[in-house]
Computed example of a mutant assay.
Amino acid sequence: MSVPGNINPAPPPSSFDSDPDFFEESRWVKFKRRLIEEPLIPLGCALTCWALYEATKSIKSGDKYKTNRMFRRRIYAQGLTILAVVGGSMYWDKDRDKRKEYNGLTAEKDRKEKLDAWLKELEARAEEEEELQKLRSKITKGQAEERRRLTESKKKAAEARLSEVKCVAEPGDLRNDGPILSELRRLWQGRR
């Protein structure tokens, strides 16, 4: 996918980038949502705790009548809580199913959009890589062409220098006893 010497340092695209729904909702947010959906359950729990607290106080003070009354209220509060749980469960069951279905469809749609965006990003990066590869090959070809031209120009310059050098001895002057030949022999032997 990547060519050595890649100019594009960006990390590959992720389908989970900047997706707040990818992370779970916190406990506090879930508690608030459930409190709004089913307010009778926390109310029943609070009444049960209040009845137990009052029963404890009346036990310490020795008031048996108030203790029995508070234990009865605790039972009523627990019954209210259980009824709220069962009733809320039945009431919200269809709504939860619809919400799950809707959330599933929405999630599927979002997933498809993210996948499409991710694929487009990958295609764009592949095109960038191809363009970079073409640019690299063009630069490499240009450098090779420049080296070839430089080599040819050096050859031509060398040939031009060789053609400028004139022969010291003309072919007609190469006689055994010619003055040029004897002069060359003396130069060669270092006598002069």
Rank of each mutant, 00 (worst) to 15 (best):
E38V: 11
E38W: 09
E38N: 13
P39S: 00
I41S: 06
P42A: 00
L43D: 00
L43P: 00
C45A: 14
C45W: 10
L47K: 15
L47I: 06
T48R: 07
T48I: 07
T48L: 12
W50G: 13
W50H: 13
A51S: 14
L52P: 00
E54S: 06
A55P: 03
A55Y: 03
T56Q: 13
K57T: 09
K57M: 10
K57S: 04
K57C: 09
S58P: 02
I59E: 03
S61G: 02
S61M: 06
G62S: 03
G62H: 00
D63I: 01
D63G: 00
K64L: 11
T67S: 06
T67R: 01
N68M: 11
R69D: 04
M70D: 15
R72A: 12
R72T: 15
R72C: 10
R72S: 14
R73P: 00
R74P: 04
R74E: 12
I75C: 10
A77I: 03
Q78L: 14
Q78P: 01
G79H: 05
G79C: 05
G79S: 09
G79F: 07
T81G: 09
I82F: 12
I82E: 04
L83E: 03
L83H: 03
L83W: 00
V85K: 11
V85T: 05
V85I: 09
V86E: 01
G87F: 08
G87R: 04
S89N: 09
M90D: 01
Y91E: 08
Y91C: 04
W92D: 02
W92K: 02
W92Q: 08
D93H: 01
K94S: 12
D95I: 06
D95T: 06
D97Y: 04
D97M: 05
K98A: 07
K98R: 14
R99Y: 02
K100N: 12
E101Y: 05
E101S: 06
E101K: 04
N103S: 06
G104W: 05
G104F: 11
G104N: 09
G104L: 10
G104Y: 09
L105A: 09
T106Y: 05
T106Q: 14
T106P: 02
A107G: 07
K109W: 10
K109G: 13
D110G: 10
D110N: 15
R111D: 12
R111Y: 12
K112R: 15
K112H: 11
K112W: 11
E113T: 09
K114Y: 04
L115E: 15
L115I: 11
L115H: 14
D116W: 07
D116M: 07
D116C: 07
A117I: 05
A117F: 02
W118M: 15
W118R: 11
E121L: 13
E121C: 12
E121W: 04
L122F: 08
E123D: 14
A124E: 14
R125P: 07
R125S: 05
A126W: 09
A126E: 11
E128G: 14
E128Y: 15
E128R: 15
E129W: 08
E130F: 10
